[in-house]
Design a protein around this nucleic acid. Structure first.
Lengths: 186, 186, 186, 186
DNA sequence: CATGAATGAGTCTTCATTCAT
DNA sequence: AATGAATGAAGACTCATTCAT
């Protein structure tokens, strides 16, 4: 998608319109401005992430790492279903200069809160080792998994995901999870 | 600085020039093009990072976390001395579409290599716990520290660094390091 | 027209646009660059000259001066129909630094060749006096006519051609032609 | 010289200054503006042409073609002594948009008048054939010689004039003059 | 006299946005 | 609803001219 690829500023309405196969006027008939289109997409992506990713995470799973495993699987499925959504929302962190309207800004914060709660709520911290503060163990695990995720994305850059056997990557992922258990659990 | 804030494309020479308090022509008198200015800054930042950050890291310290502690301290000092340098180079990861000339591209790769070796070379892995692969322990520690660093930056956003008592933050940092030792060392 | 008046470099898109009564963007909507506009005009003028001038010259007329007479009449009509075309193409000789694309460069050479052949092909040189080389007589006649043409243009500078009785000028032209016959023919 | 090569508009003071080996300020110390430099050069060239070219033409020579022969020789010598002068003044015809100050404009007209008189004054028209108006014969001869000159210049383009044997070209020139005599004289 | 860093109006070009059709 | 021609503000860049040194 144009915004994710080029960022907000460099995304050209011309290219957007051509890619979408519609006339230029149509874009502004529906959206009134480039910014509004951006807002619309932002909104759409947030809704998609909630329905296709966050709501799939089972809060009854009280084991933190198992929960993260679920989350990873759900994320991947969502990404396959609509690639670009995560990239788009991720690119927002960079294009911070864009001023979202109050409403969407609020939704975004709610999304982040929801994401956090989906990951952290109702976790059985009694599984964690006791010589380190639980709060910190949360963070270490999260940072480790985020680090792994980022590294993986870099390794996969340029790979055609449609003709691609993900199994070995999942195996690796599970290995990392096991190690994390070994390290941070009792 | 303009580039770090807005990325390459949106950085406007008009704004740069106004912020720098110079006439419009001057920029092009010295740099001939916006791209050349970018390259110059890139080069400058790399040199700054080598001399003010990487070269301060003592490779004789064989304890990985102690080394990282050193690195953290050096990084902070460099950042106070010239804030924006790390932000600028960091922003490059995002603006990847900019084509650096061969020479600078090469220097950048060397910088990354140097950074890695400064952190990983001559580490005494015998200190690590043995039930997890050493390579992974490296990664977990690194991801954790990077995660902490990023979180800290977000917390400090908008704080005036010149009139600012960093001591409590250092204490917190050291606490994290102690925990990491507890977790990943024998 | 702007290019003919000011040459390529000084022709300002601002002026072009204002004179044409269109918005600034429109120029680049159609032509993408100033150079492309120049090429387009160049191409257009060449085609115009071929269809409105050169193709009107009857190569079956074997009398050199009669042929030139025809050419002069055709040229004038073309000039009235679209003044500026000859001026524009003429100005190119001066603005030689402009790099035409291969294709147009080739067409231009073909135009010159065609022009020459339209004037010189199938001429009955047996009409020429014999004490001077035929090749030179060609040249003398051509230079004379070109000189006359140029002088005439200078005399007519600033005259409104639409409300203008050309008859006396034609008479003068024919007189010159008669003299040339007297001089260069047997 | 810069102006002759690039025309007035494209002649860059930077290039002028570099070529002249002086600092940029010096140009404006002496001339106050680019235009004034142009005017100075214009004036200088006119004076040069008068002293090195026109004043060499002997008005006592009453044979028109012989006079032109003299003129040609003088022109060449002047051109060798200071190449570029004729080119510069010639280029003015093209850059007509430059507004010369009254004074220089007047001088230029005087120069043209002087040139004409040097060529046409005190000519023995009784040498001309009588079946064509003398005035026209003047013109035909002039146009022919101008045409020849221009053609020659084109043929010599890019030739290094310092290591160059002009003799054959003079021979050719004289041949043309002989033919002109044959044609236009009794 | 001499320099060249500094200026800012002007140049070509792009692009979000509007509007007649 | 739908199109794409038209607009003009803004962007990168140039260059004659000025001025502190």
């Amino acid at each position: 998608m144009e915004f994710a690829k080029h960022g907000y500023e460099k995304a050209s309405t011309n290219r957007i319109v051509k890619e979408a196969g519609i006339g230029k006027g149509m874009l502004f008939y529906y959206f009134k401005s480039k910014k509004e289109l951006y807002h619309y997409l932002f909104d759409y992506c947030m809704k998609f992430i909630i329905s296709e990713y966050l709501s799939k995470i089972d809060e009854n799973e009280r084991d933190f790492i198992e929960r993260y495993k679920q989350a990873g699987q759900a994320k991947l499925k969502a990404n396959v279903k609509n690639p670009g959504v995560f990239t788009f929302l991720g690119s927002f962190v960079v294009n911070q200069n864009i001023d979202l309207p109050e409403k969407i800004e609020k939704q975004y914060k709610e999304l982040r809160t929801l994401g956090y709660s989906k990951i952290y709520n109702n976790i059985d911290t009694s599984l964690f080792r006791e010589d380190v503060e639980g709060e910190k163990i949360f963070k270490f695990i999260r940072w480790s998994m985020e680090g792994y995720e980022k590294e993986l994305l870099q390794r996969l850059q340029g790979v055609n995901l449609s003709t691609f056997d993900a199994t070995p990557y999942w195996d690796e992922f599970y290995e990392y999870l096991d190690d994390l258990k070994k390290i941070f659990y009792k």
